[in-house]
Design a protein around this nucleic acid. Structure first.
Lengths: 230, 230
DNA sequence: CGTTACCTTGAATCTCCTCAATACACGTGG
DNA sequence: CCACGTGTATTGAGGAGATTCAAGGTAACG
């Protein structure tokens, strides 16, 4: 849980009493709902979740994925209603914090406050990357880019062993992330598979040629991956 | 410049010595470059700017617009290289801060640190809205949505007088924001104009029927607009 | 008066969407 | 054990939507 930055003894003590509980969510279960205020702030301990927004007619856009170490509910921790919903993909364990102590965190442990800002800025960078992808890249590029991004993020938190990764997402998740229909996503994904830079059978993703995949993504996947906090 | 939150006397004093200078940029001038580190942190005092990323082959995605009150260069203020470039649209005046004092800000004025996090979280919300737009909405919806968003943000900082707004953007900016070609953007924009919810002649945008435009945007334009800091 | 920047429009082509059908794995209940 | 439903993956066909290419128009500016 604290594989990111070395805390001081003081900070450790604070974080420990800041933590309320751990909570488990089943696949498909909703963690947070757009428009509601949550009294809690979460971090992911294990599992995959995703943030999304829906339009009235059912269209869904996945905003970002949450892997171990990521924050959930920062807006609501700042007394704003949630701007998106969050759903668990796999079985997911979250660490629950009391949002009413966030203020104390800034007051008494400014370094932690700085870290939270850093995380928010970092997530902005990821959203910007997604935006470039959805706005400018072709279907194949978007898929390659998303696979690459997820693989690298997963690797950076130790989820990749021997080039293999347990990837619990469906093609529908992919479609709703890259902004194409499920059918079209499927067709382009099949083509990419045949190109051979990766294998994806069942829930097991295997990276075979990362450099090649990066070329198919139109290069540039430049998301920084280290993270300082919690 | 401080139309957002009431500062304490202490905070005011800090912000004033935190501020280094004011700097003016001409239309088209580049403020920050992706990949570089800037020793400064900026806020917009007047004018319009935009944040964007480019792909190698020249495709450009506009990430967000910066209006008076917005922060520029937060990542670089946290010792990270810039994740996007920034360019001035109109003549723009920026307030320049020393990034090496950001740490002091968190240490001695935690409320300001909290505000910065708030701003970052708020911009995440805007990026998420853009992502939904580019990923899910039709061309017409995207244009209507963007017009609505810009109009409301401009209004919230006092740039709208009598339903009229000086809008210095070109259709190319629009195209690169919503993820369509310039030609197609033009055709759909003309149609929207004929629908009559707004007028846009030269650089003058006039809102005629905000509710109607919101309907054409597929409703929901739910971006919060108040802002606490600087 | 020529250049530049921006807006506008048509035609041909290609991408992507929708509809529809099939296939497979899984779990459940008869 | 098998029939059945459900969720996911796959593929084809036809049509809507977007792209590119190309051409023309206007206004501003030196």
């Amino acid at each position: 849980m604290k594989a990111f930055r070395e805390f001081s003894a003081d900070e450790l003590r604070f974080v420990e009493q800041f933590k309320i509980a751990e909570q488990r969510f089943e696949p498909g279960q909703t963690v947070l709902v757009e428009g509601e205020k949550s009294p809690y702030l979460y971090t992911v301990l294990s599992g995959w979740a995703f943030k999304y927004k829906m339009l009235e007619d059912g269209r869904r856009q996945i905003i970002n994925y949450a892997l171990p170490g990521d924050l959930l509910g920062l807006q609501s921790a700042m007394s704003e209603p949630m701007q998106h919903s969050v759903e668990a993909v796999s079985e997911t364990t979250l660490c629950v914090f009391a949002k009413d102590k966030v203020w104390d965190l800034y007051k008494e442990h400014y370094a932690l406050g700085f870290d939270i800002t850093w995380i928010a800025a970092h997530e902005k960078a990821i959203l910007a990357e997604f935006l470039v992808s959805v706005g400018q890249r072709t279907a194949s590029e978007r898929i390659a880019f998303l696979l690459l991004l997820l693989f690298r993020r997963a690797r950076s938190v130790g989820l990749v062993r021997g080039g293999m990764l347990e990837l619990p997402l469906t093609q529908e998740h992919f479609a709703d992330t890259i902004g194409f229909s499920l059918v079209h996503t499927n067709k382009r994904l099949r083509r990419l598979k045949r190109a051979g830079a990766f294998a994806w059978v069942g829930q097991t993703f295997t990276m075979l040629d990362e450099k090649s995949l990066q070329e198919q993504a139109g290069d540039s996947c430049s998301v920084p991956l280290k993270r300082p906090f919690i």
